[in-house]
Amino acid sequence: MRFPIVIHKDPDSDYGVTVPDLPGCFSAGDTTDDALSNAVEAIECHIEGLLLDGGKLPVPETVEHYRNEDRFSDGVWALVDVDVSKLSGKAKRVNITLPERLLVQIDSFAARHGDTRSGFLAHAALEYVAAHDDQ
Rank of each mutant, 00 (worst) to 15 (best):
P60I: 05
V84N: 07
E64A: 13
V19L: 03
D74V: 14
V94F: 05
L50G: 02
A122S: 13
C25V: 08
S13R: 13
T31N: 07
T97H: 13
C45P: 05
P58I: 04
L126R: 06
A91K: 12
V19A: 07
D74P: 11
E127T: 09
A122M: 13
K92E: 15
E48Y: 09
G89P: 02
E100L: 06
H123E: 14
D83T: 13
G55S: 05
S37I: 13
V82Q: 02
I106T: 08
A110Q: 07
P23I: 08
L87C: 00
T62W: 04
K9C: 06
V80R: 08
T31M: 09
E127P: 06
L22C: 03
L50D: 04
T62L: 10
P23Y: 08
K86D: 15
A110W: 01
H132E: 02
I96F: 10
F120V: 05
E44M: 11
S118W: 06
Y66L: 07
V40I: 09
T32Q: 15
V104N: 10
P20C: 03
F26I: 14
S85T: 04
E127N: 11
D115W: 14
V84S: 05
D34Q: 10
L79A: 11
V40F: 02
A42C: 03
I106C: 10
G29R: 01
A28Q: 10
V129C: 11
F26P: 05
C45F: 14
D14V: 08
R93S: 14
R117Y: 01
L51D: 02
I47P: 00
I43D: 02
L57T: 03
V94H: 07
E69Y: 07
I96M: 10
V94G: 04
D70W: 11
P99K: 11
N38V: 05
T116D: 09
G114N: 12
